[in-house]
Design a protein around this nucleic acid. Structure first.
Lengths: 129, 129
DNA sequence: CGGAATCCTCTTCGATACTG
DNA sequence: CAGTATCGAAGAGGATTCCG
């Protein structure tokens, strides 16, 4: 079954959680490519709101680090496929750990933030007098 | 035995590796506090080249997330201690995984970078003609 | 001693428009 | 289709100075 819509929640915890892989879109790209090699425009569609510039920069960085391999098929219409390398697969446990941590402890972290912010809002109001 | 000099290699891989915990100094602070609670100035000395502003921001963020607890002992001279909470300790496996990954695969990643850069330096020179 | 205030630079991300 | 070029906004991190 082929998915044609974005597959990542816009409020996905990857921006909130304290464990990060690469930069903003890196972990999501790796997760996509872990299933199967994929062409540029497919990655773009699946990710949702990422600009071509940023996606290209992300893929270039992944390629430079040896995590993904790029293969160009001449056209027209031409297509460029990206796939995870063996080295790239070594990052999957790290992503799994990050997801697991978020599942287990993100709620506690958000509660702590709320308490902290509430406490310091009270202090700030008190400081005004 | 008390250490009075910085304990982190200035070229520590934590800035190069693709797995990050929090921001620049977060993982190192957590590693320090994992051994024992510590006062502000001790953390500062152990970390080495971190400014007061950035260390304070890092500790505030950790405190807000519920990862460290702050306890103030009035003076003079006053002292403020920071210690890991139970929630904070849940991040230790993530740090261990990051360190383990770097130990196992960082060399391969750096080799890939070198090949990539060499390859693209050749291409760039060729493109000039 | 443990910060806070201010100023600065560098990088990251996104929006937009254009191209082989 | 798979990018590149340019611009601008925002935040992270550091240097410096001052404070209770």
């Amino acid at each position: 079954m082929t998915e044609h819509a974005a597959r990542f929640d816009p409020v996905c915890p990857s921006g909130i959680a304290p464990i990060h892989i690469g930069d903003k879109w890196t972990a999501m790209v790796i997760c996509l490519l872990a299933e199967e090699p994929m062409r540029y425009s497919t990655i773009r569609t699946q990710l949702g709101p990422v600009t071509a510039k940023v996606l290209t920069a992300t893929l270039r960085d992944l390629e430079r680090n040896g995590f993904v391999a790029r293969s160009e098929h001449p056209g027209p219409p031409r297509s460029v496929h990206y796939g995870l390398t063996e080295l790239g697969r070594t990052l999957l446990p790290a992503i799994a750990l990050a997801v697991g941590w978020a599942h287990d402890h993100l709620g506690a972290m958000l509660d702590a933030q709320e308490s902290y912010d509430r406490e310091h809002a009270r202090r700030d109001r008190a400081d005004l007098r």
